[in-house]
Design a protein around this nucleic acid. Structure first.
Lengths: 190, 190
DNA sequence: CCTACCGATCGGTAGG
DNA sequence: CCTACCGATCGGTAGG
């Protein structure tokens, strides 16, 4: 277990509290209390409450893009590529449930400029995901579905995983992504 | 266009503001301002801020259960039943985007007793949905997937619709549910 | 990292 | 439905 710097400790605690009580519902005093210092002392490590939210969102979004960049331009059958991106997505979410929850649901509390910045980041990710689906449709490997609707639906399902996933449960992230891809590709009907 | 009573007007406005800015991020002064009265005057129509949230959540949950009750005990092929419950779910969400968003994402800001009450309501709905999937699996009409994981994923996708659905767009609720069911049942692979 | 404190805003009440 | 107001809490700063 790596020892966390106070700053890392603050960020980690904030991730958890923003997830549990929401950004607006978490006060800096709550946060300071959970960390074990006075509220005023937080400001030696972070600029502001919003700065804290921004850091968390950017950090997690980086994880998503790093994963995407690894496979984006690789030549691969569409089916395989979709399976892979789903697996990576699931891994990121399950390995950082708090961070993922904040990035996915609390980002909207950012102010104007940062709000738009994150909005664009999220849009770009969706677009890349959609490209993979689209490619499969165009190659004739996938059915002729609506790629946008399809992508939005799959990402929604993936993004809610943090809400019900139990890290101590029986379902490993790998098993989870496998079942997910199988269901998506093969369909429910026998 | 029916003329709304002040009370209905407050609830409708709150639905929209709770969705847009979150429950904790919406102040009673914001709300009063949007309605066009003073904050103190709100309390002639509602008991408290939380009472407002509770009303919204219960109202929407009732819509979901009414729809479910209509088909729950009807004898019907599993495939058809799943298609139908999806269609009804989509209809409710698309016809009340604000209310659905609040019920689905802001309910957790309720205090203890009400929190648990809503938690149980949501759990019951998920369980009923899962039963439909389960029945199909047991009858051998559906593949042998994990009904719980399947239900959670589908409901996640359905519950995020409010986040991207554009009522003025080309996609009608009926068309949306059709594509949804098709994708789920038939799978993506050609 | 703390004490002491700022102005602003919060949900809500009293009384009319 | 409003004016006037309550105590509590908010994010954040000054100064050490």
């Amino acid at each position: 277990m790596k020892k966390l710097s106070r700053k890392e400790q603050i960020i980690k605690t904030a991730q958890n509290m923003f997830r549990e009580k929401g950004y607006a519902g978490t006060s800096m005093r709550d946060l300071a209390n959970a960390v074990g210092i006075e509220a005023a002392s937080l400001y030696n490590h972070i600029k502001s409450k919003e700065d804290l939210l921004l850091r968390i969102c950017l950090e997690v979004s980086q994880d998503f893009f790093d994963a995407l960049d690894e496979i984006k331009d690789v030549e691969m059958p569409a089916e395989e590529k979709l399976t892979l991106v789903i697996e990576k997505h699931v891994t990121i979410v399950t390995q950082n449930l708090d961070g993922a929850a904040v990035f996915l649901h609390e980002w909207r509390f950012l102010q104007k400029d940062n709000f738009n910045r994150l909005k664009n980041i999220r849009k770009r990710y969706r677009a890349e995901f959609q490209k993979i689906v689209q490619a499969g449709v165009e190659e004739g490997v996938f059915k002729n579905i609506n790629p946008k609707l399809y992508s939005l639906s799959v990402l929604s399902a993936l993004n809610w995983i943090y809400d019900w996933y139990n890290p101590e449960g029986e379902l490993s992230p790998t098993e989870l992504s496998k079942q997910f891809s199988y269901i998506l590709l093969e369909g429910l009907k026998k």
